[in-house]
């Protein structure tokens, strides 16, 4: 049986290729935070306390646009709801752990660490130290995210506003969808959600993300019924 540290470092090395897009994402977040007028400390604190790129950018975007905390937090919840899907697949491999381990690993369960460690769990389901893989991949990602945010905060003070780097926000989210560009049903949901957001952008309380996501999910629900009937 492989030692705990060996599994930890395998997790760290397995996640490495996925870290390449994380670095510019973190830098962009730091730069935008400063450009939108948040203090360096508050911008960094988001990366430490929330540690989720999409949640952090939605929060920055809405709060700087004048949304209330309630709307900003509801929008963050909507963005986070994708996490529930992972639970269905990853929990069976972490079931035997005590609450202490589960608490720590929860802080380290990101899209990327989930992806690589789930692959490892599937292949090593009888290894009782398998959770060290997620510890390794998660800590590595956490560390890179902190460093790149700090770098962005530093650069945010230097980079001129004229570069229009805030355009990197929609581009970053666009890049998270590239895997689904070739699926027509997904593209349909994207268009429904996006157009709803544009049409209803000026509704009160900046609730457009909540509304558009809800309508997008309703479209998904209808598609899922259709999908089942086809099979």
């Amino acid at each position: 049986m492989k030692s705990k540290s060996k599994i930890f470092f395998q997790g760290a090395s397995d996640i490495s290729p996925l870290l390449i897009p994380v670095v510019p994402f973190g830098i962009i977040f730091g730069v935008i935070g400063i450009e939108l007028g948040f203090s360096p400390l508050l911008t960094y604190a988001m990366s430490f306390i929330i540690c989720g790129g999409a949640s952090q950018i939605v929060l920055l975007q809405l709060v700087s646009g004048g949304a209330s905390s309630l709307v900003a937090l509801t929008s963050v919840s909507v963005v986070n709801s994708r996490h529930f899907l992972y639970g269905a697949v990853v929990s069976e491999y972490l079931d035997d752990l005590n609450l202490y381990w589960k608490s720590i690993l929860s802080y380290l369960l990101y899209d990327q660490s989930f992806a690589v460690s789930y692959q490892y769990f599937k292949k090593n389901s009888n290894n009782i130290n398998r959770h060290y893989h997620l510890l390794g991949s998660g800590i590595t990602l956490w560390f890179i995210w902190q460093i790149s945010t700090l770098l962005g905060i530093f650069l945010g003070a230097i980079i001129p506003d004229e570069l229009g780097l805030s355009f990197a926000i929609p581009l970053t989210f666009l890049s998270l969808l590239v895997q689904d560009f070739k699926k027509l049903d997904h593209v349909f949901v994207m268009l429904v959600s996006g157009l709803t957001a544009v049409i209803f952008y000026t509704i009160p309380f900046k609730a457009y993300i909540i509304l558009a996501a809800t309508i997008g999910l309703l479209a998904s629900l209808i598609l899922s019924i259709f999908k089942k009937r086809k099979i």
Binding site: V79, L174, A212, A213
Partner: peptide, 20 residues
């Protein structure tokens, strides 16, 4: 699960479209 798999496609465009 099927509906949850659409969450990114339902949420991210709501952020992207207005900014573009």
């Amino acid at each position: 699960r099927i509906v949850l798999s659409y969450v990114p496609s339902a949420v991210f465009p709501a952020i992207i479209f207005p900014l573009v």
